Simulated scan of single mutants.
Amino acid sequence: MSQTATNTAPANDSAGLGPVLTFLFALSCGALAANLYYAQPLVSLMGSDLGLAVAAESSIVTVAQIGYAIGLIFLVPLGDLVENRKLILLTMGANVVALTGLALAPGLTLLFAGMLIVGITSCAAQMLVPLAANLAPEEERGAVVGNVMSGLLGGILLARPVSSFLADYLGWRGVFGLSAALIAVLAAVSLVLLPRREPGGERGYLALIRSLGRLFVNEPVLRRRGLYHAAMFAAFSLFWTAAPIILMRDPFDFSPSGVALFALAGVLGVFAAPVAGRLADRGFSRIGTVCAIAMVVAGFLVSTFGTTSLAALVFAAVVVDLGVQANLVFGQREIFRLAPDIRNRLNAVYMTTFFIGGALGSALASPVLEVGGWLGVCVLGMAMPGAALIYFALVDGAGD
Rank of each mutant, 00 (worst) to 15 (best):
A53N: 12
E138N: 10
M351C: 03
F315I: 15
V82Y: 04
R160V: 12
A105W: 01
W172C: 11
T308L: 05
A53M: 08
V192Q: 10
G288F: 06
I335R: 02
P161R: 06
V192K: 12
S285I: 13
A180I: 10
P340N: 08
D80Y: 02
N327Y: 12
D49W: 10
V319C: 05
Y205L: 04
V270Y: 02
V259N: 08
S366C: 12
G30N: 09
V270L: 00
V61Y: 14
M92E: 11
G306V: 09
P367M: 09
E57W: 15
M232R: 08
V259F: 00
D253F: 11
D13S: 09
I66W: 06
I120Q: 04
L32D: 11
F262A: 00
S59M: 07
M232S: 14
L45S: 13
G177R: 08
S255W: 01
L301N: 04
S164V: 01
S190C: 10
F305W: 07
G47A: 03
L264P: 05
N95R: 04
V76P: 14
G269R: 04
A365E: 06
P385R: 06
G155Y: 00
A292R: 09
A34E: 05
T100K: 08
D250C: 06
F271C: 07
V148D: 02
F354C: 06
N35Y: 14
R210N: 05
L322M: 06
L24H: 11
E57R: 12
G200D: 08
S59G: 10
F252D: 06
I88R: 05
V302C: 03
V318Q: 01
R343W: 10
P137R: 11
G146E: 00
G288N: 05
R85Y: 02
Y350R: 10
A234F: 09
R333C: 13
P244V: 01
F254Y: 11
G177T: 05
G142D: 03
N327Q: 10
A339Y: 14
P77W: 00
T308K: 01
T241P: 00
L369H: 13
L193D: 10
G51K: 08
I120S: 01
F165D: 06
L72Q: 12
P41L: 00
L72A: 02
L27Q: 03
G386A: 07
R345Y: 10
T62Q: 01
A383G: 09
F236W: 05
A39D: 01
S44L: 13
L153V: 14
G177L: 05
A388L: 05
L153I: 15
A31S: 11
T100P: 05
A260F: 04
F305C: 12
L191K: 12
G67M: 02
A292M: 03
A298Q: 11
S366Q: 13
G323C: 07
L135V: 12
L102K: 06
F233C: 04
S58L: 13
F271K: 01
F25N: 02
A231I: 09
L364G: 11
A243K: 07
A234N: 00
V82H: 04
R224V: 14
